[in-house]
Amino acid sequence: MSIDIDTARKVAKLARIRVEEDQLPALATELSGILGFMEQLNEVDVEGVEPMTSVTPMRLRRRADQVTDGNIQSRILKNAPDTREGFFAVPKVVE
């Protein structure tokens, strides 16, 4: 499966990573190379094999549905690039 420039543009968009138009051909070639390496997986007979979801056959433990923490607004906001009035601030989303 080889990746063309349109697909590379689409993948970058989905990944929310800006890639300049003149970088797209190189990206497409690189991604194609890596996917080519993965094509080997098509040699394997996986008929009847379930995709692995957990490497250890343990049941995930559930915790009680209880509030155990809170009232730490200033600590949560402390590392944010921009905050206003106790909220994370971002560029305008709705006009």
Partner: peptide, 26 residues
Amino acid sequence: VMIGTYVLSAGFYDAYYNRARRVRAL
């Protein structure tokens, strides 16, 4: 991140991601 985005995207999830997880089981 982009390779991961691609193998999880609609239309390729089974061909890449699920196949890889089946190989992992083997």
